[in-house]
Amino acid sequence: MKKYMGNKLAIFLFILPALAIFLIFDFIPILQVFAYSFTQWNGLTTPTFTGLENYFRLFQDRVFVTSNKNQLIFAILITVYQMLFATIFAITISDAKMKGRKFLRVAYFIPVILSVTVVCQLWSAILSGQGLLNKLFEAFGSDYTQNWLGDRYKAIYVIAFVNAWQWMGYQFALIVAGIKSISTDYYEAARIDGCTNAGAHRHITIPLLAETYKFCLVISLTGGIKAFTEMNILTGGGPNKSTYTLTYMMYNAAFKKSEYGYGLAAATVMVLECMIVMLVINFIFRDKDQRKEEERSRRKRHAD
């Protein structure tokens, strides 16, 4: 049996296709990102090694600061918007007696399954000078009409909103799934103890969703750091480079200016930022578990 399940040829044939495709089209590329970020490369000739020069140039670039600021705004805005609304809706809908739950779930989730380009195109039609939003203001007789994506101080918030609008339903579905997995016994016990609905959610639902929230945080914070598509479609990084992010810097440097090495340095910083955020979130949440564990063992000792 061991020989049967250890058939060398079969193992080789089974892992080969997946491993080859993964190596060639995913793993080696990310290594190349790191490696070529230390070179000057126009994409055609052989890259020449220049050490940390790209990074020095990057850290002095004013667009680098703007990009990081934009990523931060983007990340915070989508995190707050999505997690807040998703939590409110998921908890309200978890009430089995509520009418139209199925419809609401579909309504929230539909934007998630649409292509990001359709969503961006749609919102660009809504937000443009002649668009739906300005028409709405006109209809109410307000003169608050403007080109929503044309203002260098507001554009990034508008872009982040479009992303938050599309993906709120995703976090909503995650939290709904999380709530479903909580045993109803807890709520039964809480009710017997005379706990109110709000109290039960505050002390049972939200703490037990820690794992779900951790995941929500990871995807929305790293989503902010990786932001690119919305900028690319809605503003093209403008007006006046005010909606750049690191990914957009890379895209622009490589495909518009043929400065591949410089672009890859920006990409490397972006990947590192993602990793740091993931590590920090894991640390914060693990810390809580550990603290609980420590607390418990301390109490045990006292009891003895």
Binding site: F22, D26, P29, I30, T222, L264, A267, V271, C274, M278
Partner: peptide, 24 residues
């Protein structure tokens, strides 16, 4: 090891690899 190695793919952002992928 092989399984975990492939699992690394979960942490590779598509945004980062677009330049090398074009070259590959």
């Amino acid at each position: 090891f092989t399984r975990l190695f492939l699992g690394l793919g979960m942490f590779i952002p598509v945004q980062a690899i677009m330049i090398p992928v074009v070259k590959v």
